[in-house]
Amino acid sequence: MIAQLPRLHAVTDDRVVARGGIVERAAAMAAVAGPRLAVHLRTRALGGAEQLRLARRLREALGAHGSWLVVNDRVDVARAADAAAIALGRTGLEVRDAHRVAPGIPVARSVHDPAEARAAAAEGADFLVAGAVFATASHPGAAAAGPALVEAAATGGLQVIAIGGLTPANATAALGAGAWGVAAIRALWDAADPGVAARSFLAILPAAASLVVAVNGESRVVAAGTTLHGLLEQLGLDPRAVVVEHNRHIVRRDDLAQAALAGGDVVELVHFVGGG
């Protein structure tokens, strides 16, 4: 379970990428959705170098708002661009290989039927992207699996992002079937104002289970229930090399795992540096 997994996923395809302007449109959505948004860079048309350049620009635009960048299939690009997650298509690497290449980064698998969902859970996927739930112009003529696919995929315990013909109008059905969140292509990227489109999705998605805390003077978004120990872990800091002050009180190392963060908390993380 990834507590901070965004609920709204804006997935690109080659058509969206080719049209250009996706960094600006992603930034508009991120400004509205913050850490509730993940943008999936999914393209087969771009070569590695070009894809990485685009991924880095996206990462920068999204990171400013705490939104996620998810890179599809190109584990190398995901790692180089410091993506928050990797999504593997049907023909992508095996999950364990992706984990080996990019340790510590959650890996999602696209699944299209209950058998694939079970297989993905068995191979160690961290969350699932399940579809097509509804009929979609991205795959014209393909049969829609309906919310039943979400329900079946969710029985394995992994978080499921529903994809395929999702709109603010039908998203409730996917959520009712157990989806953690929803993914959309056209409904977001083709909207006249992607920020407005994102907002209409967010209105029906579960409220953000996240809070804003100040860490060393910088605002950071963390999942509700995050402890100081969890915060250090997310920051990649060794608790033995840091002294933690929480709202002006020093927290002993042994107590870090018990100290939960609340919105507006002020955390200072200090260590020794050269001095006279």
Binding site: L235, V242, L269, G275
Partner: peptide, 19 residues
């Protein structure tokens, strides 16, 4: 030897801790 107490850099690419 004397050392100073300062904020740790949250950018993990920097590693300036004296220890």
């Amino acid at each position: 030897v004397t050392v100073a107490v300062r904020r740790i850099s949250l950018d993990r690419t920097k590693e300036e801790g004296i220890l």
